[in-house]
């Protein structure tokens, strides 16, 4: 079981709810993914189309809602959105996103850390979206983040876990759960992140824009489970045999001859 801030999750797949063709497709895909945590964004109500309500489509009690602060460009904006989200959801869960660059939507490390410090003081359960920087992960953890969400690749790029070298270090060092977020474009990417030892993955675009989002959601569920099972089972190592030029072969067996 995955535990974040004292709450247990059977499923290690978190789903984003953006970019689906319709609320009903979204609801069905989420059901097919068997996930328990879904992210949502906050926006002004479109006063010309007041019926567009995502919560109605999902059913409030079946999922843990993780509101994000998407659109925030600095800590101040994120904190305001966080408080609005808490008023709307009635819970303190928060995916903190601070993305000042509209082109790449890469997270701002400085503002994210500042916002985390404040929001933890305000009683939020903060899951910050961050670049895959191991020291930043530890700083966020020290600031009280309930989990860290390093990106695999820039959001929406479907490129997979390009940051694997850094994510591995984060997984090794962090005390809080590590949720790989953004960039996961295929079930194999999700499996790869889980095999590395990630505690969970968050997927959105890869499912919402798939030809059949419902089938794709089911595929991700299987991939996440397979990856997790493989990690727990203990993966075999890639063989070192090929590196014949390494100095390992240069050491002779007589080198330990000095031992008494």
């Amino acid at each position: 079981m995955l535990t974040i801030a004292g709450t247990e999750f059977r499923s290690r797949l978190f789903l984003g709810t953006g970019k689906f063709s319709s609320p009903s497709v979204m609801a069905e895909a989420i059901a097919a993914s068997d996930c328990q945590m879904v992210t949502v964004a906050l926006r002004r109500v479109n006063l010309d189309d007041p019926d567009d309500d995502i919560m109605k489509a999902l059913g409030l009690h079946d999922y843990t809602f993780l509101p994000n602060t998407s659109g925030a460009r600095d800590a101040k904006e994120a904190i305001r959105l966080a408080h609005l989200a808490r008023a709307a959801s009635g819970s303190s869960w928060l995916k903190l996103e601070v993305t000042p660059d509209p082109r790449t939507l890469l997270p701002d490390p400085v503002e994210t850390l500042l916002a985390t410090e404040q929001l933890v003081k305000d009683g939020f359960i903060v899951l910050p979206y961050m670049n895959a920087d191991p020291i930043l992960a530890l700083r966020l953890q020290d600031a009280g983040a309930a989990a860290v969400m390093p990106l695999g690749a820039p959001i929406g790029t479907n490129q997979g876990v390009l940051t694997d070298f850094q994510v591995e270090i984060i997984i090794e060092q962090a005390k809080v759960p590590v949720v790989v977020d953004a960039g996961i474009g295929a079930p194999s990417h999700a499996a790869y992140a889980m095999e590395m030892g990630a505690d969970a993955v968050l997927v959105n675009t890869a499912i919402s824009v798939a030809g059949d989002p419902i089938a794709m959601a089911a595929a991700f569920a299987k991939a996440v489970e397979a990856g997790r099972t493989a990690f727990v089972a203990g993966m075999g190592q890639k063989s070192k045999q090929a590196s014949a030029s390494s100095p390992e072969s240069g050491m002779l067996s007589s080198d330990l001859g000095f031992l008494n």
Partner: peptide, 9 residues
Amino acid sequence: QQMAVRSAN
């Protein structure tokens, strides 16, 4: 011996 080699490297 193998441990020594790994450790040294």
